[in-house]
């Protein structure tokens, strides 16, 4: 995104991003988000959760096909942080995944991101298809 565009979005607190489904792009974006958020524990947790959901969207939704985009709408107010993360994949049964118990020490090397997001956000759900996530975190300074 052009700096000028980012500056004008800062005034409204509403941001629009489109990311390529590449690992480096997703990981670099974490630093962009981190700079935009106010300094608070809530922001750290929200940034972590958002990264997990974007990584899932790129990897599982878009299957790491670089031409498929992850589209992010971010809204920052003085009280809350909210984001929508949309991918171009077919979606997944997110409710089934969320019903699984959070077991940090489980055998799997993967699969903790979505559970960590559920634990860290005040609201977290997907659309019916499972290819658009909504995250909300209240800012608690």
């Amino acid at each position: 995104m052009e700096n000028k565009e980012l500056e004008s979005q800062k005034k409204t607190g509403k941001f629009h991003f489109e990311l390529e489904s590449r690992k480096k792009a997703v990981c670099r974006f974490q630093a962009v988000i981190y700079k935009l958020l106010p300094n608070s524990i809530s922001s750290d947790i929200f940034a972590m959760a958002l990264h997990e959901i974007i990584a899932n969207a790129a990897e599982h939704g878009n299957q790491m096909e670089a031409d498929k985009k992850v589209i992010i709408e971010l809204k920052i107010t003085k009280d809350s942080l909210a984001a929508e993360v949309k991918d171009q994949g077919r979606g997944f049964d997110w409710q089934k995944r969320l019903r699984q118990e959070f077991d940090i020490s489980g055998d799997s090397e993967r699969g903790r991101g979505i559970m960590m997001t559920a634990r860290g956000c005040d609201e977290f759900y997907y659309n019916q298809a499972g290819n658009k996530a909504y995250l909300l975190k209240t800012i608690d300074f």
């Binding site: 974490q30 972590m48 990264h51 997990e52 990584a55 940090i104 020490s105 489980g106 055998d107 799997s108 090397e109 993967r110 699969g111 903790r112 991101g113 960590m116």
Partner: peptide, 15 residues
């Protein structure tokens, strides 16, 4: 920073 992917590697190694 570390994400769930990094954490997964640590937990696997711990086990």
């Amino acid at each position: 920073s570390i994400d769930s992917s990094g954490l997964g590697k640590l937990l696997l190694f711990h086990k």
